[in-house]
Simulated scan of single mutants.
Amino acid sequence: MSLTLNPYINLRGTAREALEFYHSVLGGEVQVSTFADFPEMAPPGEEHLVMHGQLTTAEGLVLMVSDVPSTMPYAAPAGFAVSVSGDEAERLQRVLWDALAESGTVTAPYTTPPWGGTFGMVTDRYGVDWMVMCNDGPGDAPTVES
């Protein structure tokens, strides 16, 4: 059996904009379905909202977003973070960290933590928390033993 765990971000009216921003940062392919594509589910006046958006990168990263229509309860993203890690220092720094931090709020600077590598936390312009970790080298990510 194969399992995949993907972040799915719910936003209120900014899912398309967020998906376009994440696409500009991560690259990849974007797929978008709006509520208009499913008329029986479309809240009146909100047919243009994103029912399901998906960004899939060449590296296999998958990030999903949707707009929560006004007919459903909504709480801003909280209690989770999207974590991206790897060993491509320049890409993680310039392409990901700098882009997220430019219009976001840095909650932990992108610097060397006690466990090595480079790590930082930022809340992006959509209120989504991100953790970015660059390992010292392949296979140097911290591990937890049971």
Rank of each mutant, 00 (worst) to 15 (best):
T112M: 07
V82H: 09
P69C: 14
T111C: 08
A89I: 02
P73V: 09
A101N: 12
P77H: 04
S70V: 11
T71H: 10
D87H: 11
P73W: 11
P73K: 06
L96Q: 02
S66Y: 05
V68Q: 13
V95P: 00
T105W: 07
P77R: 05
A81T: 14
G104I: 00
T107Y: 09
P113Q: 10
L100H: 02
V95C: 10
E88H: 02
V82C: 08
V82Y: 13
D67I: 09
P73Y: 08
R94S: 15
V65K: 04
Q93E: 14
A108I: 10
V84D: 11
E90I: 07
D98I: 01
D67A: 03
D98S: 04
T105G: 05
S66E: 13
V82W: 13
E102A: 14
T105Y: 07
S83L: 09
L100F: 06
M72L: 12
L92D: 09
V82S: 04
W115M: 01
A75M: 13
G104Q: 01
A101G: 08
Y110N: 05
W97K: 12
A78R: 08
A99D: 02
A76E: 03
R91E: 05
E88I: 00
S83W: 07
G79I: 09
V106H: 03
L100K: 02
G86N: 09
R91Q: 10
F80E: 01
A78C: 05
V95Y: 06
G116I: 08
V68I: 13
T111S: 14
P69I: 14
T107I: 01
A78L: 04
